[in-house]
Simulated scan of single mutants.
Amino acid sequence: MKLHRVNAVIARHVYESRRNFDRVVDTLWWPVLDIVMWGFFSIYLTHGKGLQPSFISMMLGAAILWTMFYSFQRDMAVAFIDDLWCRNLINLFSTPLMLSEYMTGIIVVCILKVTIGLTAASAIAWAAWSFNVLPWLPKFVPYIANLLIFSLAVGIAITGMVFRYSTKVQALAWGFAGLLMPVSCIFYPVSSLPNWLQDIAWMMPMAHSFEGMRQVLAGKGFSPLHFWWGAGLNAVYFTASILFFGWIFEKARSRGLLVKQE
């Protein structure tokens, strides 16, 4: 792996983001809009409902972490789809650029975008509702790491699907995370689900991360149990996504599909 080729992939997406309003909207507008919407919704629920003020913190914290997960997973897949839309994929892989260098560059770009969006959302939460995420951040970091690893695994799997089936399945880049929302328990505890659905939820690293986040905000401290369960599940899902991506990429290349992508 050559660092200068990774830097070239990063520069390509940075230049494109600076002049593409869609990328600005994805990076800043939607994270901020999510925080504003859930913030007002939380205020509405607390008025006359007998709910504790910490409820607002839990809702805003969940919204920030969910936005981070969704943005990272979406940007992973969309970065690749962009190269399909502009018919640039064959140009990239006709150079000495390795697949690992290409994916590493995209991951770095996604981390930069998520950091910008997370900073903007946290600033709005602090300015509008006095929710300062910084004191909680040290205890959130392990859960954030689990969320990022799982979103990376999902993004890699979706990118592999796009490699194989082209833009016919591009809707997965925006919609797949939504399929996971009911069992991710973002804004409610796992115990609120039906018994049969709770078993599925506990198989999601996201559910463990959000349960751990709520425990921290409730003043019960960091939960090693939720962290290690999430980390163990991530090890399984991430390994499976890498194997799946390698298999489907080789299958697409052996069939000559890389030059036929639309």
Rank of each mutant, 00 (worst) to 15 (best):
H4L: 09
H4S: 13
R5I: 00
R12V: 01
Y15E: 07
S17N: 08
R19N: 03
V24M: 13
D34R: 02
V36R: 06
G39A: 01
F41H: 03
T46M: 12
K49E: 02
Q52A: 12
F55L: 05
S57F: 06
I64Y: 00
T67W: 00
D82Q: 14
C86H: 07
R87L: 12
S100Q: 05
E101W: 01
G105I: 01
G105P: 02
A120E: 02
I124Y: 02
P135Y: 04
F140Q: 12
A145W: 00
L148K: 09
S151G: 15
L152P: 04
F163S: 13
F163A: 14
R164H: 08
T167D: 14
Q170I: 04
A173R: 11
F176V: 15
P182Q: 10
C185S: 11
I186W: 08
I186C: 12
Y188A: 15
S191A: 10
H208P: 04
M213S: 08
R214V: 00
Q215R: 12
Q215L: 08
Q215A: 08
K220E: 02
F222M: 04
W228N: 09
G232K: 11
F238K: 11
F238I: 10
A240D: 03
A240H: 04
F244D: 13
F244A: 15
G246Q: 09
W247Y: 14
E250H: 13
S254L: 08
K260T: 07
